[in-house]
Amino acid sequence: MPSVSMTVNGKQVSGTVEPRTLLVQFIRENLHLTGTHVGCDTSQCGACVVHVDGASVKSCAMLAVEADGSTVTTIEGLAGNADVLHPMQEAFRDNHGLQCGFCTPGMVMSAIDLVNNNPTPTDHEIRDWLEGNICRCTGYHNIVKSIAAGAAAMKGQKAAAE
């Protein structure tokens, strides 16, 4: 069986996988990082979104072997420590951007990729970007509010760091 190694949330990890092992299975079952969810398993719902080499991807539509040598960030890797959330996570909490929370890891990972590409997205751009993330509770309104607030907070954090 092929062996894979990658950097996940800043840590070097490796494992032996079947070629057909999906990246999301490797993350959840080998690394026990269960924050990344499997929703539809047909690459539509976006609950499994992670970052691979800085870009958001659906980890249920990527083989683990294809991520060999990559840098992967999951929802667990966002907050620097257990007490301080990432500004986008904080914005979802502040704006009631979730109800059941199942879609939230994917929403947050997708939202951060949007803001990395477009630091000041309009509501329309946020809604357009969320094409690949399905939420069955909120009606999206508070998610859009959360992402707008999270984008502003990320900008503030970046400005403070400079």
């Binding site: 690459s43 976006g46 979104v49 870009a55 958001s56 991807v57 659906k58 539509a61 990527m62 997708s110 990729d113 949007l114 970007w129 094409e131 690949g132 993330n133």
Partner: peptide, 9 residues
């Protein structure tokens, strides 16, 4: 095409 994550792959 598709959605952002599909376009990234």
């Amino acid at each position: 095409i598709g959605d952002a994550q599909v376009r990234n792959r």
